[in-house]
Write a protein that binds this DNA or RNA. Structure first.
Length: 866
RNA sequence: GCGGACGUGGUGGAACUGGUAGACACACAAGACUUAAAAUCUUGAGGAGCUGAGCUCCGUGCGGGUUCGAGUCCCGCCGUCCGCACCA
């Protein structure tokens, strides 16, 4: 009979329906089996699923399905990170309410995700903009407030005076608002903060326990927290100003104090603000500094500028040396004391500054072998390198900077001239957003009672529906009645807080909520403690710092307030790479989509033509799929054409999951052909394979095939466990090639091949099942397998089949491969040596040189040194 | 600027703790099947050389080093990418 092509369109929806009807993926906490919680970062409902989601969710699904097959009780939920600015931007642009825009998008994307055949428990689904969810978040906020983990203070923000809104750093382009084009101001607003710094040491220390996290993510978090030991030294002003007698400076390099030649303070330093009142030029300079923005990057990249305040301080060790006080545009008020001493000889930035403003350059130390003064390059050896200090006040001469730093701090503390201290770069987390589409902060401002938390009985503070986006600013502020409220304490007229929470708050505890998504309280402790931590979390590297750090903080804060009982939310973390695609640039500079061009290749030279006009078009760089470059491919188009399994297989093939994957038409077609090939291969075993027990005494091709089957499944399992999906894929290919070869071998003498073939084809289906689940079910049914594939356990691997009795090792002469040797496994060293030296190629290559040494690494290699 | 990662054939990538570099796939070429095309199957291939089916030399971004042996470890460069606190 002729075999019909595998038709994913019909099969995939059918199997998805079967899984849904049987509630295959509905998780119950009380079910048997060790728990396994696999989670992919939930998507922002932007409108359509993109290829990055396909990759992310495919990986998670392979892990989830594999762990199910391994007997675990798997929790694999999905939801929506649904608050955020794009909904408000859409509201402004298209007059759609953010709520309907968001829920409409969710409906579309849910269908798209369902078409991928993911083993998700959709009963657990929620969106962070659901009232039930943000009500719980408001409860958490109130608990944090009680625990003094939430508080209010002033802080500086980027303010767009036209749009009347706070801007993200990325929304400030060349000092102007991205939408309005207005010059951005730095404004002090009173804002809500979470006291993440209460845990800074703990968040740092615990990083070492996160063994299944990528090293680079841990390093990034470590640097972000930025623990440093330094000293705070007050520099005495020669003439006190407004009662201020000294300027405390924080430094991590007090060993360079001898070279100090100026003090630089932030434009936001209290002294600078005082001086602004008396000097218009200085005020203007400070205003210019503030325009630089609030990002560290902007500060560091900008040209270093200063303004001499005319104030003078004394050097703390040698009081007759006087240092000028400058305002520097590179000094951050938020870090340390907002004032630093400049040491040009040992800091390039300070050196540039000193040369520009003609300030002295004095070495604190020199290299032991080169006693030279610094000219145009600062001397910045590593802290562990020995240097020669010049008349150091503690008497140090030859020492490392680290030793000198420690000694200097001790010296200052003894004399009472300064205080050694540990500082962190990590700042408290500002959560106030002057926006509509977010979780309202549940507090009330009362003129007589101050800040009053909304009583828990009055929760939720719901977002009003009737808002307008025509006026600039926060719609909650413009609402005629929403913010008017009676004070819960004194019953007088009061005003609701109109700030909403940063959307990072929403995503900082959703993983806990998934364990009891319908509970009235944020979590149910018995349930959440049963499921957490997440055993495998998968998402983009862009979240390596903030989202993960905030979630780690939230878990601790929720522990402190009794919502759960652990510190670290994610036991295993994996960051996957992006999906990238070629770009096609038209002669007029515009971009063409992949659909609009046809690629041809001759003699390894690729060229593209624009379908519409037939003209040649330039193939541009390979870049992250983005709307602006128009190099996106819509997952739904791919699934419609090739099926979900083909898309999933391609996503797993070739590229290591942590690296970027290049989406190509050729690649997806290759995956498609393999899907068809597997389908044919399974059918070709019909009539040749039996499903009886495999006899114990096998030999020849039957034994070889059986070894391949068992080894492949062991390797596939191992590589899925290690999240090396591309290698699992390669082993499936090799297995399929081996099976094809056996089936094609007409003169096969083995008596016992039929049951071995049966086992092999079963193993093959079980092996690719987690990756291509629909094809797997279809094949499983075709061979008459019991029940559903999805309910099968991963097969037992026979350890006796893992190793061959004979092995082939390479034989080198002087490190160059000259021959190979097939020998019994674990043969004695002396015997291997003898056999190697007898090889023809080896004898010839050595010639009449004496054999000086023979290195034998058993089961690996022989190297003859002659 | 600071911090981090990466660099292997025409392409994506394999190579476990230093032990046969290029598994597997894509693309390509030749052949089979076909009226033809598609699909499918078979075969080939890192580069250079040698009167040639075997062997030699070169080869993992570049330059050094350690070692019997380096894609892998160390030092110094070059290049590409990512993050930098209100995008999610």
């Amino acid at each position: 009979m002729t075999l019909e092509r595998y038709n994913p369109g019909a099969c995939e929806t059918r199997w998805q329906q079967v899984w849904t009807d049987r509630e295959t993926f509905t998780t119950r906490t009380d079910e048997a089996g060790e728990k396994y919680y696999v989670l992919e970062m939930f998507p922002y409902p932007s409108g359509r699923v993109h290829m990055g989601h396909v990759r992310n969710y495919t990986m998670g699904d392979v892990v989830a399905r594999f762990k199910r097959a391994r007997g675990f009780n798997v929790l694999h939920p999905m939801g929506w990170d649904a608050f955020g600015m794009p909904a408000e931007n859409a509201a402004m642009a298209n007059k759609i309410h953010p709520r309907s825009w968001t829920y409409d998008n969710i409906a579309v994307m849910r269908d798209q995700l369902k078409s991928m055949g993911l083993s998700l428990d959709w009963d657990k689904e929620f969106a962070t903009c659901d009232v039930e969810y943000y009500t719980c978040q408001q409860q958490l906020f109130l608990d944090f407030l009680d625990a003094e983990l939430a508080y209010r203070r002033k802080s500086t923000v980027n303010w767009d005076p036209v749009d009347q809104t706070v801007l993200a750093n990325e929304q400030v382009i060349d000092g102007r608002g991205w939408r309005s084009g207005a010059e951005v101001e730095q404004r002090d607003l009173t804002q809500w903060f979470f006291r993440i710094t209460a845990y800074n040491d703990e968040l740092l220390e615990a990083l070492d326990s996160l063994e299944r996290w990528p090293e680079k993510v841990r390093v990034m978090q470590k640097n972000w927290i930025g623990k440093s030991r330094g000293i705070e030294i007050p520099f005495q002003l020669t003439d006190p100003l407004d009662g201020c007698e000294n300027i405390p400076c924080y430094s991590t390099r007090p060993d360079t104090l001898r070279g100090a030649s100026f003090i630089a303070i932030s434009a936001d330093h209290p002294l600078a603000k005082t001086l602004e009142n008396t000097s218009p030029e200085l005020a203007e300079f400070c205003a210019k500094c503030r325009k630089l923005g609030t990002s560290e990057e902007a500060l560091e990249k900008a040209e270093k500028l200063g303004f001499d305040t005319g104030l003078v301080v004394r050097h703390p060790v040698t009081p007759d040396i006087l240092l000028p006080v400058w305002i520097g545009n590179f000094v951050l008020m938020d870090y340390g004391t907002g004032a630093v001493f400049g040491c040009p000889a040992h800091d390039q930035r300070d050196l540039d500054f000193a040369r520009k403003y003609n300030l002295p350059v004095r070495n604190a130390f020199v290299m032991p072998d080169a006693d030279r003064d610094v000219e145009n390059e600062a001397l910045v050896p590593s802290k562990s390198e020995q240097v020669l200090f010049k008349d150091h006040f503690t008497g140090i001469t030859l020492a490392t900077s680290q030793e000198a730093i420690d000694k200097t701090i001790d010296w200052f503390e003894e004399k009472g001239l300064g205080i050694g201290m540990i500082k962190y770069r990590l700042r408290d987390w500002g959560i106030s957003r002057q926006r509509y589409w977010g979780c309202p902060i549940p507090v009330i401002h009362c003129e007589s009672c101050g800040i009053v938390p909304v009583p828990r009985a009055d929760l939720p503070v719901e977002l009003p529906d009737d808002v307008t986006f025509e006026k600039p600013g926060n719609p909650l502020d413009h609402h005629p009645t929403w913010s008017q409220v009676k004070c819960p304490t004194c019953r007088g007229d009061a005003r609701r807080e109109t700030d909403t929470m940063d959307t990072f708050v929403d995503s900082s505890w959703y993983f806990a909520r998934f364990t009891s998504p319908r509970a009235k309280t944020p979590t149910e402790p018995e349930v959440v403690n049963r499921w957490l931590p997440v055993d495998q979390y998968i998402g983009g590297i862009e979240h390596a710092i903030l989202h993960l750090l905030y979630s780690r903080f939230f878990t601790r804060a929720m522990k402190a307030t009794g919502h759960l009982d652990l510190d670290e939310p994610f036991a295993g973390m994996f960051t996957q790479g992006m999906v990238v695609h070629e770009t096609y640039q038209k002669p007029d500079g515009g971009w063409a989509t992949p659909d609009e061009v046809t690629i041809s290749e001759t003699e390894n030279i690729r060229s593209a033509i624009l379908n519409e006009t037939g003209e040649k078009i330039e193939i541009g760089g390979i870049e992250k799929m983005s709307k602006s470059r128009r190099n996106t491919v819509d997952p739904s188009d791919i699934i419609e054409t090739y099926g979900a399994d083909t898309a999933r297989w391609f996503m797993l093939s070739d590229s290591p999951p942590e690296r970027d994957i290049i989406w190509t038409e050729a690649g997806i077609e290759g995956a498609w052909r393999f899907v068809q090939r597997l389908w044919r291969l399974v059918h070709d075993t019909h009539g040749k394979a039996t499903y009886d027990p495999v006899p114990a005494d096998l030999d020849g091709p039957a034994l070889e095939l059986r070894k391949t089957a068992h080894r492949t499944l062991a390797l596939v399992a191992d590589n899925i466990e290690g999240l090396r999906f591309n290698r699992s894929v390669a082993h499936i290919y090799e297995f399929a090639n081996a099976l094809t070869a056996v089936l094609g071998d007409k003169a096969n003498p083995s008596q016992n091949l039929a049951p071995v073939l049966g086992e092999a084809v079963r193993f093959l289906i079980l092996g690719f099942g987690p990756m291509m689940p629909h094809l797997g079910e279809e094949c499983w049914r075709a061979i008459g397998g019991d029940g559903l594939l999805v309910d099968q356990q991963w097969p037992e691997i026979d350890q006796n089949l893992m190793q061959d009795d004979t092995i082939t090792i390479a034989v080198q002469v002087n490190g160059k491969r000259r021959d190979e040797l097939t020998i019994a496994r674990d043969m004695a060293k002396e015997d291997i040596e003898k056999a190697a030296l007898a090889l023809g190629n080896v004898v010839r290559d050595i010639g009449d040189r004496p054999v000086r040494k023979v290195i034998v690494v058993p089961n690996r290699i022989v190297n003859v040194v002659a």
